[in-house]
Design a protein around this nucleic acid. Structure first.
Lengths: 203, 203
DNA sequence: TGTACATCAGTGAACGCGCGTTCACTGATGTAC
DNA sequence: TGTACATCAGTGAACGCGCGTTCACTGATGTAC
């Protein structure tokens, strides 16, 4: 009775081949990062969370650095997506687009602080790895073009101003330091951010 | 011969009582942080660097969190000192004072990125500890007053704008991400920063 | 000045823990015939 | 359709390591008398 084999293939867990372990490990790694923080991050914890033997992650990512590098690359993709999503809801006006991108920047940092820190404030990913370097460059180019659309040329100092303002707000929000603004209702908060971001835009 | 005792008291190291181990451990901790990074930070490494038994730090700081908390408190003091030092070299004009404080903010982050990260991007110090909380509040108040001197009132949004701009530049510099500006000669760099910081000042 | 004693700073051996890495293995999948 | 075999994904036991913490200790310092 109790050992009777199921007649139909139940799509339940304990299959030997996971099928999509690569992505499952990335998801577990992000959850682990968010809950436990970067400082206690380990391959074994990630494997445990993914319900898989502790040696499995090495199969896919080599070592802990490899996993964090892959996660950071994925992080940059989502970071850019967060900016794009806000831009899609804004007017086409170059200034409005810059502000919207900034709001997306801040939203990403606020909603996923651990991932934000991983891509901007950690030494552990290998930022020389092609995939990750590409993601990073793509994010910079994205902002660059937005500023260029407003000013005509892409002056590095103009770009730095816009970038730093968005980044400063984002990083302080991720760290929970912006008491004065953190308490505001979401709509008011976004209005305040939009006003601040606008100050950094040249012209 | 070779085991002859020295006739005069040589003031060399191997004294049992260190005398100023508390401060020496803090210095070692900062050096350790700068060289090895926060992620590999450990009491035993700090003790080794200070040339002292691995159990000694616990005597002074309790545990690794206590040491990092003490180091962060000291970090905030030096952070404020970096701003003040720049301000002393600038004119008394409120706008010039804000810009100078920003340059000090950035200089601190650039010169001591590990300490900067510890006080702004780490969860490991106990920011509720009185000494550390006081340092953090003092830093905020410092900026607050500077902005107030310029605007008359201390509008949290004005403060946030100035703060975020300085912080964004500082954090990106600490992370080595501001390629375009990092390459500039120091004087040009400061001029660029000053121009950017000025954009965030209300009025 | 000398002696006794309390206090404190720092030691070093011991412990248990979680980690990364290795490696021979096993179970599942896909392909060739 | 069936069989054989190569390939690959994932396992689990084993290892050595550095860590934090504990604890009985020892050496130095300061104070009381």
């Amino acid at each position: 009775m109790e050992t009777e084999a199921p007649l139909c293939a139940v799509p339940e867990k304990p299959r030997y081949h996971h099928g999509a372990l690569h992505d499952a490990l990335l998801a577990a790694a992000e959850a682990e990062l968010a809950e436990t923080g970067l400082e206690a991050f380990s391959l074994r914890r990630v494997a445990r969370r993914a319900g898989v033997s502790h040696a499995a992650p090495a199969h896919h990512f080599g070592d802990v650095g490899g996993l964090l590098t892959a996660l950071a690359a994925e992080g940059f993709r989502q970071f850019i997506a967060a900016m794009t999503a806000q831009q899609a809801r804004a007017s086409r006006d170059p200034q409005a687009q810059i502000v919207a991108a900034g709001l997306g920047y801040i939203a990403f940092a606020t909603e996923r602080p651990a991932l934000f820190r991983l891509i901007f404030s950690s030494d552990r990913p290998d930022f020389g790895a092609p995939d990750l370097a590409a993601g990073s460059a793509q994010a910079y180019d994205h902002l660059s073009r937005l500023v260029g659309a407003r000013t005509g040329g892409e002056d590095p100092v103009d770009i730095a101003a816009v970038w730093a303002m968005a980044h400063g707000l984002a990083d302080l929000m991720a760290a929970g330091r912006m008491d004065a603004i953190q308490h505001l209702a979401p709509a008011d908060r976004d209005r305040a951010f939009a006003g601040i971001l606008a100050r950094s835009i040249p012209g």
